[in-house]
């Protein structure tokens, strides 16, 4: 078990190196090359281009350039934003925190509702409730998150005036945890829909299989109450699968946050990336891809280890 965990931990090193090579390469795909990408508007001045080229070693061979870039990035120096004229890292990390709040909120919705929906639809297999819930998850998974966000915003914020439509905290008064939570309800739910649908479907099919296994029958024969048969005996065996799929959904939640933040004016990385796209701020974009991918890799590792801890059969292999 510990050995396997160590192996998994070691295996993310080449992955992270690969990710860094891909993100490094992005800037080289920019028409005009990395110097132009880093200067933005100022790239019209050949002297500035020459200065950046010299300073960042862009005239050196690619592997050297990569090494120089990686060393700076590991030290937290991602370069200057061409749009906001401040170091990207000072821009990025506060926004990352906001996006993590939104992603965590979505994850809570996806796990809680997705699991409950998956278990109940499996228990009432082929009932009207099962059919409606599955249709709902299919439609939810087929709709763009930003469109769902706009519909929710129109219904709950504009028409019913129950929840705020924009922002992360109230503009009136100091920001409180309560006001952040209030602002989180709609965007987190909009972002959660696809992950929720996927989790519900996986839990449902795994539960359908688990419920007819001998160990559930044995629990029933021993006269255990129905909830114990379902939760302790059947669901316990579904848990590793559920955790695995949930870990994979985190990447999609990050992706979805990008759109949801634009709809709800949530001041996170997604909103930053959106402004970077409009302004062609490649440097900020590059750093955002690197940071989000790093977080994603670590989350997946955590999910993998949790699954391992929960499934002794896997651990023994």
């Amino acid at each position: 078990m510990l050995l396997y965990a160590g192996q998994r931990l070691a295996a993310i090193v080449p992955t992270l190196i690969g990710v860094s090579i891909v993100t490094f390469g992005l800037l080289h795909l920019v028409p005009g090359g990395p110097a132009v990408a880093m200067l933005g508007m100022a790239a019209s001045d050949p002297k500035a281009v020459a200065a950046v080229t010299r300073e960042l070693g862009l005239d050196r061979p690619l592997p050297t350039q990569y090494w120089l870039w990686l060393r700076r990035a590991l030290g937290g120096d991602f370069g200057m934003s061409t749009e906001f004229h401040v170091p990207v890292s000072s821009l990025l990390f506060p926004k990352l925190e906001h996006t993590l709040i939104l992603t965590a909120g979505s994850l809570v919705y996806a796990i809680v509702i997705g699991t409950i929906l998956g278990i109940t639809t499996a228990l009432y297999h082929r009932s009207l409730f099962d059919r409606l819930a599955m249709l709902f998850t299919l439609i939810g998974a087929s709709a763009p998150v930003f469109w769902i966000g706009l519909l929710l915003s129109y219904l709950f914020a504009i028409k019913l005036r129950l929840l705020p439509a924009l922002g992360m905290t109230s503009v009136l008064g100091p920001p409180t945890v309560l006001s952040v939570l209030e602002h989180l309800i709609l965007p987190a739910f909009a972002n959660a829909i696809i992950a929720l649908a996927v989790i519900a479907r996986i839990v449902r099919s795994a539960m359908l299989e688990a419920l007819v296994q001998p160990y559930v029958l044995a629990a029933r024969a021993r006269g255990l109450p129905r909830w114990r048969q379902v939760v302790v005996h059947a669901f316990r065996n579904v848990l590793p699968d559920a955790i695995n799929i949930t870990g994979l959904q985190v990447g999609f939640l990050f992706g979805g946050a990008l759109f949801v933040e634009v709809v709800f004016g949530w001041p996170g990385l997604g909103y930053l990336i959106y402004s970077s796209i409009q302004a062609r701020d490649y440097v900020t974009m590059q750093a955002a891809v690197l940071i989000v991918s790093g977080v994603f890799v670590i989350v997946n590792l955590a999910a993998d280890l949790a699954r391992l801890a929960l499934d002794p059969r896997e651990a023994r292999r």
Partner: peptide, 8 residues
Amino acid sequence: FAIPMVLL
């Protein structure tokens, strides 16, 4: 796979 699809 390690980079969120939409972001990439």
